[in-house]
Amino acid sequence: MSTRISDELKSWIGREATYTAPEELGRAAIRYFALALGDDNPLHHDEALAQSTRHGGIIAPPTLVCETNQIFQNAPDENGYIGHSWPLPLSSSRFMRGSNEYEFHQPTRADDRITVTWRIVDIYEKDTRKNGAMIFVVSEARYTNQRGELLAVNRETNIHQP
């Protein structure tokens, strides 16, 4: 059994945190996100064209719903970050993103007011060829709109080097 994963750390498995955006996503946020990606797909900015498709109107680029910092009104921390994080009892010297698995249930639209529920699914230790023993934290986020409709699920693995 692992020595690096304390009972205290393990007790975080199953914890949840829910946040709701103070306002709807907005068309400008959709256009800004597309612009940042060099994405000129008219589905994200041309209402007339988007209406003629089976989407029936402007939709957000798929992964925008998974970027939820805009829900928060916190002042930036010392590194500039304002979003959700788990204050895990980890003294990690390095943190890396591992993987993302997205499921998109329906497109997100400008008038959606998004709620996200984060849950820690698993915390485990694994020996990696490159970096030795690492701690993997698997979280799942579920995103819904103001009608409670499921928009997307994002299962994310982050890696901490102890």
């Binding site: 994405d39 498709t53 989407h55 939709i59 993987s99 698995e101």
Partner: peptide, 15 residues
Amino acid sequence: MQWGGADAFVRKLSY
């Protein structure tokens, strides 16, 4: 989305 065109929608993506 660019490849799939105006009626496309990404259902799943894992990387």
